[in-house]
Every structure is written in C-alpha cells, then in structure tokens.
Design a protein around this nucleic acid. Structure first.
Lengths: 191, 191
DNA sequence: CATTTTTGTAGGACAGTGTTCTACTCCAAT
DNA sequence: ATTGGAGTAGAACACTGTCCTACAAAAATG
C-alpha cells in the first residue's frame, strides 16, 4: 500500500547514470526501448532528469553517441610497429566495436543524432594517424591523409552497416568477406 | 459546419497511393512525419487502409523500402560497353539515387525495415552482372562475383551513408571524395 | 438488373510517447 | 542554522500506433 519514495541521486551522478542506462537499455532491448521514462527508470532517476541535464530526449541521445565515439576512438587504435599490420588491426578493431555494440553503432551514424564534433573528429583522427604512419613507411600512396582516411572509413563503415542490417547476401560469411574488404582497401591505397 | 464525407478510393489504388504518399512525405518533411494518420491524409485515404492493405505501419514502411529497391535497381544500371566505364557509371548512378532520395535511402538500409528479399537481391544482381562483365573483359580480378560485388557495395554504401549523415570532415568536397573512392575500389578489385 | 459480400470511410477508444508544470523534499553551501 | 538549488512525485497535454464499431459504397454474385 505505502508507496515508498526513492532515494535521491547525487547531482553529479545523474548525468552519467542516464547515459549508462540508455546504452544498456539500447543494446539489451533495442532502440524502441529508449523512452524517457524507461531510461530514467533504468538509471534509478526521475524522468525530469532528462530535461534538467540534457536537452530532452534528443539531447540525451546526442550525449549517448558522443560517449560512444569517445570509446570508439580508444577501441580502434592499434600500435603494431609494422604499418600494414597496424592498418589491418585497426580495421579489425573497428569491426569488433561494431559487433560489441551494434545498436549503438547504428545510432552513432544515423541522421537522428549529432555527436560532439570534437569527440567525433578525435575518433577520425586515430585513423588519420594510422594513414600517416603508413605513408611514412611508404606503404600507402601519397596524398591528403584526411581524404584517404575518409575513403577508408567509408569502406569499413559500409561493410559494418550492411552486416548489422543483414543486407548482405546470406550465403557470404561476414567475417571472411570483411577480411577481403580490408585487403581490397589496402590495395586501393597502396603506394 | 457540415463535415463533408470524402469520396471513396478504389481498392486497387489504396495500396499504391499509400506508398507514394509515404515516399513524398518522407522526403518532404522527414521520417518523423511518417505517421499513420499523416500518410493516410497525404494519400487521401482513411488511416485504416494502412491496416487493411499492410501489416500496420511497419508493413507499410517495408513496402516503401521494397518500392525503393525496385527503383534503385533500375537506376544504378549502366550500359557502357567499356567495362571500366560501366563500373564507374554505375557508381555515379548509385550516388545520384542516394542524393535524389536521401531519407528513403537511409530507411532502405536501416534495421527498422526489411525489404522484400527478391527485390533487394535483384538490385544487388545488377552490380553482380557489372562485376562479371568486368571480369570477362579482364579488368576485374577473378573470384566469386557475389563476394566482390558485396565488397564494392559496402564501399559505395559507406560513402553515401556518411555523406548523407554529414559524418565526413566538412572541409572535404563530397563529390570529389566520392570519385576518389571509386578509383580506390577500382584499384582494389583490378585484375 | 437485383442482391449479397467485400471493402472503404468516420469516429471513438486505448495504452504509451515526449514534454511541461506544480508541489514537495532533501542535500549542500553559505 | 538557514536558504536556495536540485532532486522526486505525479498530473496533464497533444500526439502516436493500433483496434473497434457503425455505416455506406463499390464490386461480385445471382
């Protein structure tokens, strides 16, 4: 009978709790489950927190994808000293992240969300640095590293986007096909 | 004061009208405007038509993306006798379609919709045929045409997905970058 | 041509959504 | 110790997908 009042969440944790709850809910139950009331309940927070700490639901989702890009940047980094190995490793790290958080990955690249520009650029910069490293080793053709990175990014993103949407021919093995794609890209940007 | 009753739409037209209305509304006002009531009003049809002719809103959207894939297949086809020119032309046709119907294109490749398998496979087959034509001309490397087509498709899809989401560095010219990407792909699958 | 069945429209209803408002209460800094 | 900011609770609004009933018109049947 007695409806107990929930304990109050410290102000400094509300924001982080909401982002973490949204990410959990997104992967566990899909993007349809990302409701203001649902995320707040998952975070143990009042729905109003979404409006006090973010610019409504859209603002929360923007914060979620920004958080995703921050993690993405650290995940795709590779440190192999061999330039070719580093490029391949980064490509595989890219796929591993997308497979770990498929729904977040889709949200990150959908037109519904706008991640913080600096953070997104940071993740892109990781790839640019790998391209530069390959150019220094004379593995990758000369040219604007940003442009080359954008092309490489497009190829791997397209592969993961299609794999996650199951838009690829079902008789092709996704992992095998992705490895072939990485080789295609390597040939395409070879010096 | 007097609410006039709308004329009744012939049964054979309701379905096509709803799909056409959804496509118009989608491009004109964005995916948020794709409500059952909104589409029905745009089509001059009662909302119940969405449930009589489709499996609810999701069924209507599936029909919309299937319609999109049908048109897509005809649009990307290229007939240049030179194999390299045909491949390039198809790549440019691909981009032209995505730029003509950006919101439909995003919907077609989102996880929310499932196009009719046969139709989607048909569009993919257009690219497979172009790959085969290039192999016959000894322009493209030997290997499974389906696998090669899937890789090429991934690259161009990724480029358009990023361009439409404005996820590319703003200082790069999209058209120019896309041309570079087509050359990258051509080198990657060259014999 | 007359009758019956199918199928569109009208309009209301339901639960769930994003969003905003008010009231209350607790934590923290002055 | 008091005050003000910031959390919760809960109601309210318009809008969403979905379903239901009632009625009328088109289409198929005789």
């Amino acid at each position: 009978m007695s409806t107990v009042k929930n304990p109050r969440t410290p102000a400094t944790e509300v924001r982080a709790n909401l982002i973490a709850a949204a990410r959990q809910l997104l992967e566990r139950e899909g993007s349809d489950a990302l409701t203001v009331r649902g995320v707040a309940a998952e975070a143990g927070v009042a729905p109003m927190g979404v409006y006090n700490h973010f610019d409504g639901k859209d603002g929360l989702l923007d914060a979620v994808v920004t958080d995703g890009f921050r993690e993405f940047g650290t995940r795709i980094a590779a440190t192999d000293s061999d330039a070719a190995a580093r490029l391949l490793a980064a490509g595989r790290n890219y796929r591993a992240f997308a497979l770990d958080y498929p729904r977040l990955y889709e949200l990150m690249f959908s037109t519904k969300c706008t991640p913080d520009d600096e953070v997104a650029t940071g993740a892109f910069g990781v790839l640019v640095d790998i391209i530069r490293y390959g150019q220094a080793a004379n593995l990758i053709m000369a040219g604007d590293p940003d442009s080359l990175a954008a092309q490489v990014w497009a190829c791997v993103h397209g592969a993961m986007s299609l794999e996650l949407a199951e838009s690829q021919p079902p008789f092709l093995d996704p992992a095998e096909n992705y490895e072939h794609l990485l080789l295609l890209v390597a040939r395409g940007i070879a010096a």
